[in-house]
Design a binder for these strands. Structure first.
Lengths: 109, 109
DNA sequence: CAGCTTAATTGTAATATTGCAATAACAAGA
DNA sequence: TCTTGTTATTGCAATATTACAATTAAGCTG
Protein backbone atom coordinates (compact mmCIF):
# COMPACT_ATOMS: atom_id res chain seq x y z
CA UNK A 1 0.00 0.00 0.00
CA UNK A 2 0.92 3.63 0.05
CA UNK A 3 1.53 3.98 -3.65
CA UNK A 4 -1.01 5.66 -5.89
CA UNK A 5 -3.12 3.15 -7.81
CA UNK A 6 -2.65 4.69 -11.22
CA UNK A 7 -4.01 1.67 -13.06
CA UNK A 8 -7.51 2.40 -11.82
CA UNK A 9 -7.67 5.65 -13.75
CA UNK A 10 -7.52 6.86 -17.31
CA UNK A 11 -4.37 8.20 -18.92
CA UNK A 12 -5.88 11.66 -19.01
CA UNK A 13 -6.68 11.56 -15.32
CA UNK A 14 -3.15 10.46 -14.52
CA UNK A 15 -1.76 13.13 -16.83
CA UNK A 16 -3.71 15.87 -15.12
CA UNK A 17 -2.69 14.56 -11.71
CA UNK A 18 0.98 14.46 -12.71
CA UNK A 19 0.88 17.94 -14.15
CA UNK A 20 -0.78 19.20 -11.00
CA UNK A 21 1.85 17.44 -8.94
CA UNK A 22 4.55 19.30 -10.82
CA UNK A 23 3.19 22.63 -9.65
CA UNK A 24 2.02 21.37 -6.25
CA UNK A 25 4.93 22.96 -4.44
CA UNK A 26 5.39 26.68 -3.86
CA UNK A 27 9.07 26.52 -4.82
CA UNK A 28 8.18 25.08 -8.21
CA UNK A 29 5.44 27.66 -8.64
CA UNK A 30 8.00 30.34 -7.80
CA UNK A 31 10.49 28.94 -10.32
CA UNK A 32 7.89 28.90 -13.09
CA UNK A 33 6.64 32.40 -12.26
CA UNK A 34 10.19 33.66 -12.27
CA UNK A 35 10.92 32.14 -15.67
CA UNK A 36 7.65 33.43 -17.10
CA UNK A 37 8.27 36.90 -15.71
CA UNK A 38 11.75 37.02 -17.19
CA UNK A 39 10.41 35.45 -20.38
CA UNK A 40 13.93 34.47 -21.23
CA UNK A 41 16.72 32.12 -20.43
CA UNK A 42 17.83 32.51 -16.87
CA UNK A 43 21.36 31.67 -15.89
CA UNK A 44 21.94 31.31 -12.18
CA UNK A 45 20.25 33.34 -9.49
CA UNK A 46 17.55 30.80 -8.86
CA UNK A 47 19.03 29.58 -5.58
CA UNK A 48 19.11 33.14 -4.23
CA UNK A 49 15.64 33.82 -5.64
CA UNK A 50 14.11 30.87 -3.83
CA UNK A 51 15.93 30.91 -0.53
CA UNK A 52 16.20 27.14 -0.42
CA UNK A 53 19.49 25.29 -0.28
CA UNK A 54 21.23 24.62 -3.58
CA UNK A 55 20.58 20.84 -3.64
CA UNK A 56 16.90 21.40 -2.86
CA UNK A 57 16.59 23.93 -5.63
CA UNK A 58 18.37 21.59 -8.00
CA UNK A 59 15.93 18.84 -7.08
CA UNK A 60 12.90 21.00 -7.82
CA UNK A 61 14.40 22.03 -11.13
CA UNK A 62 14.96 18.38 -11.94
CA UNK A 63 11.32 17.57 -11.29
CA UNK A 64 10.19 20.39 -13.54
CA UNK A 65 12.60 19.18 -16.21
CA UNK A 66 11.29 15.62 -15.83
CA UNK A 67 7.76 16.66 -16.76
CA UNK A 68 9.21 18.75 -19.58
CA UNK A 69 7.73 22.10 -18.58
CA UNK A 70 11.17 23.70 -18.37
CA UNK A 71 14.40 22.97 -20.15
CA UNK A 72 17.97 23.58 -19.13
CA UNK A 73 20.88 24.21 -21.41
CA UNK A 74 24.42 23.96 -20.20
CA UNK A 75 25.97 27.34 -20.75
CA UNK A 76 29.64 26.99 -19.95
CA UNK A 77 29.97 26.82 -16.23
CA UNK A 78 26.32 27.45 -15.43
CA UNK A 79 22.93 26.33 -16.74
CA UNK A 80 20.30 28.37 -18.55
CA UNK A 81 16.72 27.53 -17.71
CA UNK A 82 13.62 28.52 -19.58
CA UNK A 83 10.00 27.58 -20.07
CA UNK A 84 9.36 25.00 -22.77
CA UNK A 85 6.59 26.86 -24.61
CA UNK A 86 5.21 23.74 -26.26
CA UNK A 87 4.76 21.82 -23.02
CA UNK A 88 3.58 24.96 -21.26
CA UNK A 89 0.79 25.23 -23.81
CA UNK A 90 -0.09 21.56 -23.29
CA UNK A 91 -0.47 22.21 -19.58
CA UNK A 92 -2.52 25.30 -20.24
CA UNK A 93 -4.82 23.43 -22.61
CA UNK A 94 -5.25 20.42 -20.38
CA UNK A 95 -6.15 22.57 -17.40
CA UNK A 96 -8.49 24.66 -19.49
CA UNK A 97 -10.26 21.52 -20.63
CA UNK A 98 -10.44 20.29 -17.07
CA UNK A 99 -11.77 23.58 -15.72
CA UNK A 100 -14.67 23.71 -18.11
CA UNK A 101 -17.42 26.03 -17.13
CA UNK A 102 -19.70 24.70 -14.48
CA UNK A 103 -23.25 25.93 -14.63
CA UNK A 104 -23.57 27.76 -11.32
CA UNK A 105 -27.34 27.43 -10.95
CA UNK A 106 -28.32 23.81 -11.13
CA UNK A 107 -25.35 21.84 -9.97
CA UNK A 108 -25.39 22.26 -6.24
CA UNK A 109 -27.58 21.18 -3.40
CA UNK B 1 13.22 18.66 7.83
CA UNK B 2 10.98 17.20 5.21
CA UNK B 3 8.14 19.66 5.57
CA UNK B 4 7.52 22.23 2.88
CA UNK B 5 8.96 25.63 3.76
CA UNK B 6 5.84 27.64 3.04
CA UNK B 7 7.15 30.75 4.79
CA UNK B 8 9.68 31.34 2.03
CA UNK B 9 6.97 31.95 -0.55
CA UNK B 10 4.13 34.35 -1.19
CA UNK B 11 0.55 33.61 -0.26
CA UNK B 12 -0.35 33.35 -3.93
CA UNK B 13 2.42 30.84 -4.58
CA UNK B 14 1.25 28.73 -1.65
CA UNK B 15 -2.36 29.05 -2.80
CA UNK B 16 -1.54 27.82 -6.27
CA UNK B 17 0.53 24.97 -4.85
CA UNK B 18 -2.28 23.93 -2.50
CA UNK B 19 -4.87 24.04 -5.24
CA UNK B 20 -2.61 21.98 -7.46
CA UNK B 21 -2.11 19.53 -4.61
CA UNK B 22 -5.85 19.07 -4.36
CA UNK B 23 -6.02 17.80 -7.93
CA UNK B 24 -2.63 16.07 -7.83
CA UNK B 25 -4.14 12.62 -7.52
CA UNK B 26 -6.01 10.75 -10.27
CA UNK B 27 -8.76 9.69 -7.88
CA UNK B 28 -9.50 13.29 -7.02
CA UNK B 29 -9.38 14.25 -10.70
CA UNK B 30 -11.83 11.43 -11.37
CA UNK B 31 -14.16 12.61 -8.60
CA UNK B 32 -14.18 16.16 -9.92
CA UNK B 33 -14.67 15.06 -13.53
CA UNK B 34 -17.54 12.84 -12.43
CA UNK B 35 -19.24 15.66 -10.55
CA UNK B 36 -18.72 18.09 -13.42
CA UNK B 37 -20.05 15.57 -15.95
CA UNK B 38 -23.14 14.92 -13.86
CA UNK B 39 -23.40 18.65 -13.22
CA UNK B 40 -25.62 17.84 -10.27
CA UNK B 41 -25.67 16.52 -6.77
CA UNK B 42 -24.41 12.99 -6.64
CA UNK B 43 -25.60 10.66 -3.94
CA UNK B 44 -23.60 7.48 -3.57
CA UNK B 45 -21.99 5.57 -6.39
CA UNK B 46 -18.62 7.23 -6.02
CA UNK B 47 -16.98 4.24 -4.38
CA UNK B 48 -18.02 2.00 -7.27
CA UNK B 49 -17.05 4.69 -9.79
CA UNK B 50 -13.52 4.96 -8.43
CA UNK B 51 -12.72 1.34 -7.60
CA UNK B 52 -10.88 2.30 -4.44
CA UNK B 53 -11.91 1.10 -1.00
CA UNK B 54 -14.62 3.07 0.75
CA UNK B 55 -12.33 4.61 3.41
CA UNK B 56 -9.85 5.69 0.74
CA UNK B 57 -12.61 7.29 -1.29
CA UNK B 58 -13.94 9.02 1.81
CA UNK B 59 -10.49 10.39 2.51
CA UNK B 60 -10.13 11.86 -0.99
CA UNK B 61 -13.57 13.41 -0.69
CA UNK B 62 -12.53 14.91 2.62
CA UNK B 63 -9.46 16.51 1.07
CA UNK B 64 -11.53 18.02 -1.70
CA UNK B 65 -14.00 19.31 0.86
CA UNK B 66 -11.16 20.78 2.91
CA UNK B 67 -10.05 22.99 0.06
CA UNK B 68 -13.68 23.86 -0.58
CA UNK B 69 -13.89 22.77 -4.21
CA UNK B 70 -16.71 20.34 -3.45
CA UNK B 71 -19.39 20.37 -0.84
CA UNK B 72 -21.33 17.54 0.74
CA UNK B 73 -24.83 17.71 2.11
CA UNK B 74 -26.17 14.98 4.34
CA UNK B 75 -29.20 13.57 2.60
CA UNK B 76 -30.80 11.18 5.05
CA UNK B 77 -28.70 8.07 5.06
CA UNK B 78 -26.29 9.12 2.34
CA UNK B 79 -24.39 12.24 1.32
CA UNK B 80 -24.86 14.38 -1.76
CA UNK B 81 -21.70 15.78 -3.26
CA UNK B 82 -21.38 18.55 -5.79
CA UNK B 83 -18.95 21.08 -7.15
CA UNK B 84 -18.85 24.38 -5.29
CA UNK B 85 -19.17 26.69 -8.31
CA UNK B 86 -17.71 29.70 -6.51
CA UNK B 87 -14.53 27.93 -5.46
CA UNK B 88 -14.34 26.15 -8.80
CA UNK B 89 -14.27 29.54 -10.49
CA UNK B 90 -11.55 30.71 -8.11
CA UNK B 91 -9.43 27.73 -9.12
CA UNK B 92 -10.10 28.33 -12.76
CA UNK B 93 -9.16 32.01 -12.49
CA UNK B 94 -6.02 31.39 -10.47
CA UNK B 95 -4.77 28.78 -12.94
CA UNK B 96 -5.64 30.99 -15.87
CA UNK B 97 -3.63 33.79 -14.32
CA UNK B 98 -0.77 31.42 -13.71
CA UNK B 99 -0.83 29.99 -17.21
CA UNK B 100 -0.52 33.34 -18.88
CA UNK B 101 0.60 33.23 -22.42
CA UNK B 102 4.27 32.69 -22.93
CA UNK B 103 5.75 34.22 -26.04
CA UNK B 104 7.03 31.16 -27.89
CA UNK B 105 9.75 32.90 -29.87
CA UNK B 106 12.07 34.72 -27.55
CA UNK B 107 11.94 32.87 -24.30
CA UNK B 108 13.93 29.75 -24.89
CA UNK B 109 17.51 28.89 -25.50
C1' DC C 1 47.52 21.75 -13.95
C1' DA C 2 45.59 24.04 -9.59
C1' DG C 3 42.08 26.67 -7.95
C1' DC C 4 37.46 28.64 -8.46
C1' DT C 5 32.59 28.58 -9.58
C1' DT C 6 28.34 26.48 -10.45
C1' DA C 7 25.19 22.73 -10.77
C1' DA C 8 24.11 17.72 -10.06
C1' DT C 9 24.20 13.63 -7.24
C1' DT C 10 24.27 10.86 -3.08
C1' DG C 11 22.87 9.74 1.40
C1' DT C 12 19.93 10.41 5.08
C1' DA C 13 16.38 12.25 8.22
C1' DA C 14 11.88 14.29 8.76
C1' DT C 15 7.40 14.71 7.20
C1' DA C 16 3.39 13.81 4.10
C1' DT C 17 0.51 10.96 1.35
C1' DT C 18 -1.86 6.83 0.03
C1' DG C 19 -4.48 2.78 1.00
C1' DC C 20 -7.22 -0.29 3.58
C1' DA C 21 -9.06 -3.26 7.60
C1' DA C 22 -11.56 -2.49 11.52
C1' DT C 23 -14.60 0.20 13.75
C1' DA C 24 -17.72 3.87 14.78
C1' DA C 25 -21.75 7.07 13.63
C1' DC C 26 -25.97 7.78 12.09
C1' DA C 27 -30.34 7.73 9.82
C1' DA C 28 -34.12 4.89 7.79
C1' DG C 29 -37.05 1.07 7.92
C1' DA C 30 -38.79 -3.57 9.86
C1' DT D 1 -35.27 -1.64 19.39
C1' DC D 2 -32.78 -4.24 16.10
C1' DT D 3 -31.11 -4.53 11.69
C1' DT D 4 -29.51 -2.56 7.40
C1' DG D 5 -27.25 0.69 4.44
C1' DT D 6 -24.16 4.38 3.94
C1' DT D 7 -20.41 7.44 5.20
C1' DA D 8 -16.74 8.89 8.54
C1' DT D 9 -12.95 7.93 11.65
C1' DT D 10 -9.07 5.44 13.58
C1' DG D 11 -4.90 2.98 13.33
C1' DC D 12 -1.34 1.29 10.87
C1' DA D 13 1.86 -0.02 7.05
C1' DA D 14 3.90 1.21 2.64
C1' DT D 15 5.48 4.63 -0.24
C1' DA D 16 6.53 9.42 -1.67
C1' DT D 17 8.14 14.00 -0.91
C1' DT D 18 10.93 17.59 1.05
C1' DA D 19 15.17 19.32 2.73
C1' DC D 20 19.99 19.68 3.32
C1' DA D 21 25.09 18.35 4.33
C1' DA D 22 28.59 16.27 1.97
C1' DT D 23 30.40 15.13 -2.13
C1' DT D 24 31.05 14.86 -7.00
C1' DA D 25 31.29 16.60 -11.75
C1' DA D 26 32.38 19.80 -15.09
C1' DG D 27 33.77 24.04 -17.13
C1' DC D 28 36.37 28.19 -16.72
C1' DT D 29 40.61 31.07 -15.59
C1' DG D 30 45.11 32.02 -14.16
Amino acid sequence: MGATKTDLFTKQQNDIANMAKAIAHPARVAILQYLVKKNACVTGGLVEELGLAQPTTSQHLKELKNVGIIQGTIEGTSVSYCINPKVWKQYKDLFNTFFKDVNPEDNCC
